[in-house]
């Protein structure tokens, strides 16, 4: 399996809800990745004041990583986490994918109306269209009741 697409995957996490959904999708696949590098990009304004304090978002990021860590704890997966900083979220993820020697970038789409995507930026589209690494889009699995 060492050459497979799922050898070492970079998994961008966008929020706490996304952390739950993405991890759920990861482990419901037939082949669970060997190594998961969960990343979150803290978006920088590049010269203007940021929309939120960096430290504030770093704390929120740690909470997301905790969710991933908890949900993956029962599986045979190596988990690494990495906070990234950049002005362009998709670009930063792809760059990190190369730096982290990733075999693929794996994520779950978050849906949302066109209006929301316009406001928040359509990272999923940019990832698919701009990445020179393999990109795997996992379907969002429904939540299991007894969790």
């Amino acid at each position: 399996m060492s050459d497979s697409l799922f050898r070492r995957v970079v998994v961008p996490i966008a929020s706490k809800d996304d952390a739950r959904a993405t991890t759920r999708a990861l482990v419901s696949q037939n082949s669970v990745p060997e190594t998961v590098v969960a990343v979150h990009v803290i978006e920088k304004a590049g010269g203007a004041p940021d929309k939120a304090s960096v430290e504030q978002r770093e704390r929120d990021t740690e909470a997301m990583f905790d969710i991933v860590r908890t949900q993956l704890s029962g599986y045979d997966v190596d988990l690494e986490t990495e906070i990234l900083y950049g002005t362009d979220v998709a670009e930063t993820i792809v760059e990190a994918g190369h730096d982290l020697d990733a075999s693929a970038i794996v994520f779950t789409p978050r849906g949302g109306s066109r209006w929301i995507r316009l406001l928040a930026g359509d990272v999923a589209l940019s990832l698919i269209s701009e990445s020179d690494l393999p990109v795997v889009v996992l379907p969002d699995e429904p939540e299991v009741e007894d969790e």
Binding site: A14, S15, K16, D17, D18, E43, K51, A52, S53, E55, Q56, R57, D60, R110, G112, I116, L119, A120
Partner: peptide, 26 residues
């Protein structure tokens, strides 16, 4: 920022400092 710092020191309700799921704003 001031609200966040106050919440960090437990002087203000942390609830106020929740980061938005989608927009990543306080």
């Amino acid at each position: 920022r001031v609200n966040f710092a106050m919440g960090r020191d437990q002087i203000l309700i942390e609830w106020l400092n929740e980061v938005h799921e989608r927009f990543r704003t306080p």
